[in-house]
């Protein structure tokens, strides 16, 4: 709501054109896409639940086996009890014990793989959830940075406009013209980001091409935001203003959060991807529908833009 008011104010003051305002508003409207992705995550859980039917089947067999073990053989005799037939021979191995040991061995033979299967399955689920959690954190940080755009645009543009009006400074006028171009590029980059997240939602973590595209778009957003801040280099007064320091700190802090969450997301993806490829977990992963996750990084052909710092 605050961003919307700010955009409306900037539009009324002529800082943004109607088209730019609409574009900025749309690019910040991640809420719906985010909710949809959350719903999709819920759907994924349902699919995972349905893919567990082999486990349920095996579990049922084992439960029946255990029931039989506890209650004797599967076919009940209706004959009167013949105690003598079941008595142990002196010095021999008791029939009752022999039967019990055999069933126990069969039960263990069935239960041990089941326990192993369940343990592997649960550990894969845990690792996958860690990936989703890490992605949610990354996405939240991307959203946080997007929310800073209106404040950044307003602070820098208003200052330059004030400079142009009061000092008729050529530098300020040139700076304002440069800002207009930088604003268009910033909005385009932010729009591209919103489109990718909006289209793919949570499933983006399984799409390498889309994640690489999102990474590139985010890098461009960061660069364009820094272009705005770079204008301050020419204006010591703006640069030393506490309000500007605050904005700069928020932006750099958000960028660092994105970096940290990206690093942790990639670590969680590496751990998960390694787990689903190793035997015997790969068998469980194959049956359980655990797919490979993508890294949030530039694709191999893209070159990394340099990280900027302002101080």
């Amino acid at each position: 709501m605050e961003s919307d008011d700010r955009i409306r104010r900037m539009e009324a003051d002529g800082i943004l054109t109607a088209a730019q305002a609409a574009q900025l508003r749309e690019s910040l409207d991640w809420g719906a896409a985010y909710d949809e992705s959350a719903a999709e995550q819920g759907g994924r859980s349902t699919r995972r639940h349905l893919s567990r039917w082999p486990l349920v089947l095996i579990g049922a067999v084992v439960v029946i086996g255990l029931f039989m073990l506890i209650n004797g053989s599967g076919v009940e005799s209706t004959a009167p009890q013949d105690v003598a037939a079941t008595l142990n021979d002196p010095g021999g191995i008791g029939q009752m014990n022999r039967s019990f040991s055999g069933l126990l061995a069969i039960a263990l033979f069935l239960i041990a793989p089941l326990i192993l299967w369940m343990w592997l399955h649960n550990s894969l689920v845990q690792k996958e959830e860690t990936v989703f959690e890490a992605w949610a954190q990354t996405e939240s940080n991307l959203k946080r940075r997007a929310d800073l755009i209106p404040a950044l645009v307003e602070t820098v543009t208003r200052y330059l406009r004030h400079e142009s009006e009061t000092l008729t400074s050529v530098t300020a006028q040139r700076g304002e013209a440069n800002l207009a171009a930088a604003l268009d590029e910033l909005l385009a980059a932010q729009r591209a980001t919103a489109d990718i997240v909006g289209e793919d939602g949570e499933s983006i973590v399984e799409n390498e091409a889309d994640l690489a595209a999102l990474y590139a778009a985010q890098e461009r957003v960061g660069q364009r935001m820094h272009s705005f801040l770079a204008v301050a280099e020419n204006y010591p007064e703006l640069r030393s203003a506490d309000q500007f320091l605050e904005l700069q700190a928020q932006l750099e802090g958000t960028e660092n959060r994105i970096n940290v969450s990206r690093m942790r997301f990639n670590e969680s993806v590496a751990s998960y991807n390694a787990a689903i490829r190793k035997l015997p977990a790969s068998l469980v992963a194959g049956a359980g529908g655990f797919g490979r996750k993508a890294y949030f990084q530039a694709d191999a052909e893209a070159h990394e833009e340099p990280k900027l710092a302002f101080d």
Partner: peptide, 10 residues
């Protein structure tokens, strides 16, 4: 833990 909050400077 921490998630990258804070600030760095020269």
């Amino acid at each position: 833990g921490s998630g990258g909050a804070g600030a760095s400077t020269s």
